[in-house]
Amino acid sequence: MENDKLYLRHMELLRNKVPSFRSYPFHLPVIRSLERLEFRNPVTFLVGENGSGKSTLLEGIATAWGFNPEGGTLNFSFNTRSSHSILYEYLRIARGVKRPKDGFFLRAESYYNVASYIDELDEQLSPGPRIRDSYGGKSLHEQSHGESFFAAFMHRFGGRGLYILDEPEAALSPLRQMSLLVRMHELVCSESQFVIATHSPILMSYPGADIWLLEEEGIRKVALEETEHYAVTKAFMNDREGMLRELLGED
């Protein structure tokens, strides 16, 4: 997918309209220093420690685009609990010339709510085609957490879409994460764009992806090898016994 054909080109914070940088979510370091974030490749990762604001920023981008804050497709309008921030009201989204034919916002913490909403809609639609048919034909609640995640990737994501994913690795084994990489590549080759918040060095290894690190000083672009996720994982696997002795205080 060529850069000039991306669906999401950039987003910027309307700083002059922010009521206060001392209140949530604007007090978060990444938001406080945010001006404009460019999307130049089909796959973009947001990485950082817990509490760095990556999920808040991702939610703001997804909601500003038009997705339900709790996740799902653009057509999902349920509201289980209004816990999303007002950040999206202060973001300006630049859309590409081409419009996506598909889209999905997946967030690990509220995927249960998405699954419940699908089951409710299917009960209303019966008899007739069911929404779950687009997820492999089986209720997401009748699958393990990891299986239900993977069902969306394999069956619901159809290509030519914008897919915004918040920690998709949360329910996936390392092998499944590698399978997700394969599926991502298939979808990128089908003119799709991904924006992903993650802790997974496996996912971050996608070739040509942009990795944006969120830290106290703000946000900056880094290589995979510069991320703490990669460095710590590599150090641990290269010297597991030494790391365990140090961590557990053993001689």
Rank of each mutant, 00 (worst) to 15 (best):
T233W: 11
G96E: 04
W65M: 10
E49T: 14
I164H: 08
E147Q: 13
R36T: 06
M243H: 03
D133P: 02
A152K: 15
E228H: 13
S23R: 08
F105V: 01
G71N: 13
R220E: 05
E228L: 15
V43H: 07
N79R: 14
N113P: 00
M184V: 06
I219W: 03
L87I: 14
Y112M: 07
M184S: 05
C189I: 04
T80G: 13
Q124H: 06
Y206H: 12
R130S: 15
S192M: 00
V195K: 00
E226F: 07
F150P: 03
N50K: 10
F105E: 08
S205M: 03
S23A: 11
S52T: 07
H185T: 07
D122V: 00
N238H: 15
D210Q: 14
E215A: 07
D251F: 14
H199P: 02
I61K: 05
N50F: 01
R22G: 12
R107L: 04
V47H: 03
V232L: 10
S77I: 06
G72W: 01
M11R: 00
A108Q: 06
C189A: 11
H27E: 10
K17L: 13
S190F: 00
M237H: 14
E215C: 01
Y88A: 15
G53P: 06
D122T: 00
P29C: 11
F150H: 06
G146R: 05
L34F: 07
K98H: 12
E70M: 13
T80Y: 14
L14P: 00
R40V: 03
F153D: 10
L244R: 04
H10P: 03
L46K: 10
L74A: 13
P201E: 12
Y163L: 13
A115G: 08
K98D: 13
M204A: 06
K101V: 03
T63W: 12
A170H: 09
N16W: 04
E147I: 01
E226L: 10
G72Q: 07
G137Q: 05
H141F: 11
